[in-house]
Amino acid sequence: MADPWQECMDYAVTIARQAGEVIREALKQKMNVMIKSSPADLVTATDQKVEKMLISSIKKKYPSHSFIGEESVAAGEKCVLTDSPTWIIDPIDGTTNFVHRFPFVAVSIGFVVDKKMEFGVVYSCVEDKMYTGRKGKGAFCNGQKLQVSKEDDITKSLLVTELGSSRIPETVRVILSNMEKLFAIPIHGIRSVGTAAVNMCLVATGGADAYYEMGIHCWDMAGAGIIVTEAGGILMDVTGGPFDLMSRRIIAANSRALAERIAKEIQIIPLQRDDED
């Protein structure tokens, strides 16, 4: 049987490229920066423009499909995942990077059917790297097949994580304490590029051995999640349980053993789920 979603994936790649062009152009202009949930949670007119462009293009082509978009949710739309084919979109993952012209900015498009990830497209547009993953078909970057690293010794691992946009002192304390615990195992190092989607894609390339974070959203993870698993990696909840796209937390690692070892060290930050009011 022909792959029913391949056409959707090809279309996602096309529009992610178009969105990337808009973003690259906007990087040359003066920006209008607004604040969302905290002084470090930023949004720009370009985020809103790109999301509108992506969703209206897809709606025209696939009118029966559902959508979850970061800026639509910020504007008050409900974040509900049903069984219907759903496009989960982050127009600019790495808005703070975008504002500062720090060169890691990604368009992330995830496609979920029956609540399961079918494909993901992450376009790191300043680097011009197109990451793709399709269930059962592998993961690629600019056409080159991706494979996670083989490193299963945590003391020889390189991890990626983010400090996040919350400035609540207790949350910041837990984030830093988790980094300190992992750092002192010891591990080779911890890196941050400022976008969850690119961090996860770096795990898929084998450049990093694992990524963990709490406080992100489904639109940060839906595109890159399947790229990690199709490159041979694993997604897990920070508790060590099964990964849940709406839980706002993740460990993406090259192996179950490494993911479980990270979960053992992490103190949980209580968060409201994406699908809760």
Rank of each mutant, 00 (worst) to 15 (best):
I251T: 04
C79M: 11
S192L: 13
R134N: 07
I109D: 01
F119E: 06
S57K: 10
L81S: 09
T155L: 07
K137D: 09
T239N: 06
G69H: 08
R167D: 09
G143D: 04
K36I: 13
Q267H: 12
D237A: 07
G233Q: 03
P4C: 11
V73Q: 02
D152Y: 01
K264F: 13
F98M: 12
A208Y: 10
A252N: 00
V50N: 04
G241Y: 00
V174N: 04
V80N: 06
N254I: 02
E170I: 06
E230V: 07
S166R: 03
F119L: 07
D83E: 14
T14Q: 08
I89F: 12
E276N: 07
V50F: 11
G241D: 12
K52Y: 10
Q144S: 14
D10S: 12
M1E: 14
S255Q: 01
D83V: 00
F98K: 09
N254E: 00
E230W: 03
M117Q: 13
V43P: 04
G233P: 01
S72W: 06
R24F: 05
Y11T: 11
M200C: 09
F104E: 11
D128L: 10
R24I: 08
A263T: 04
T132Y: 08
K30E: 15
I154R: 00
V172C: 13
V198R: 02
Q48V: 15
K60C: 09
T86I: 06
S192A: 15
G143V: 06
F104M: 14
G240A: 05
I268S: 08
L202I: 01
L271W: 04
G207T: 13
V193R: 02
I109G: 03
Y11Q: 07
I185W: 04
S166M: 04
L146P: 00
S66H: 12
T132V: 15
V172Q: 06
S255C: 05
M200N: 03
E265S: 09
Y212Q: 05
G215W: 01
D244K: 00
L158D: 00
R273Y: 10
R167G: 04
K137T: 10
F183L: 15
V22S: 10
S192N: 14
I15G: 05
K137H: 14
E25G: 02
D47F: 11
N178G: 03
T195M: 04
T82W: 03
I35P: 00
Q144K: 15
D10E: 14
